[in-house]
Amino acid sequence: MSLSGSRSARTRTTLRNGAIAVLSVAMLVPLYIVVVNAFKPQQEILLSPLGFDPATATTQFLQDAWTNPNFPVVSGYAVTLFLVVACNVVAIGVSVPTAYVIARTPTVLFRVLLMFFVAGMFIPAQIILVPAIFVLKALHLMGTLPGLVLFMSSTMIPFTLFIFTGYIRMLPRSLDEAAAIDGASQQRVLWRIVFPLMKPIVATAFILNALSAWNDFVSPQLILGPGSSFRTITTGVYAAVSSYTTNYEIVFPTLLLAVVPILLIFVLMQRHVMSGLSAGAVKG
């Protein structure tokens, strides 16, 4: 009886692991197709999309993609990284003091203020972009990187502020009150005492904001404009690929150049990304 029980448990584990393995392979097939086909000429891609023949493999198409003027890879990465950092600095920088004040002032006014900010979470960024363009035009920020950074940051503020407020509320008030009695100014209490304690939630916000900035296509495409000298990875890929979607000698190498770095970062930071996401969701 117990013998058969343990045997059936073992069968179940084997079955489960088998299912997980099959599903994992299925998820990875598209990535495999991009990788092998980035090294093959068009004819070979069409004849055997899954095969890989080291004898005919060439880095020629990757080199072509690298030097494609539509997608300047190095500067595309530089611009995208700049956006990730700049938007986070702005969004986190303005959200910390506001969240601190809201969390530490339990009056109706500040509760309404929080709701006012949080309402922004229900407004899809790319939908509000059309009228935002007219604001940016009026401010003479249309077509500029500062304009793009400000718009993308503004869409990050609601969520960032929301999770920061929730986090600061959990920090003991006695900490900052003691410091305030010792004569430290409000700014000093905030940045020297409260902010260092916010490390985990700041990391969560940074990761989630970084993902959305890294992958944003509509904002840079519309705010910088298709003719801009600044290209992000996504607008570069669009410029390089959208008119040549059946020229796989262009499509696959370009996609490979666009996905490899972010996937490497993901592999290295995998645990932080996934735990940051669930932490953010639990707070949300």
């Binding site: 702005v90 920088g93 303005v94 959200s95 003091p97 506001t98 601190y100 004040v101 809201i102 203020l113 900010f117 922004g120 407004i123 509000i128 935002a132 604001v135 940016l136 401010l139 400000l150 718009f151 940051s153 503004s154 869409t155 503020i157 609601p158 502020l161 409000q186 700014q187 905030l190």
Partner: peptide, 13 residues
């Protein structure tokens, strides 16, 4: 202290 966040948020959203 709430002004910077409010400016960016109000201005662009």
């Amino acid at each position: 202290m709430t002004v910077p966040a409010a400016l960016v948020y109000i201005g662009l959203m």
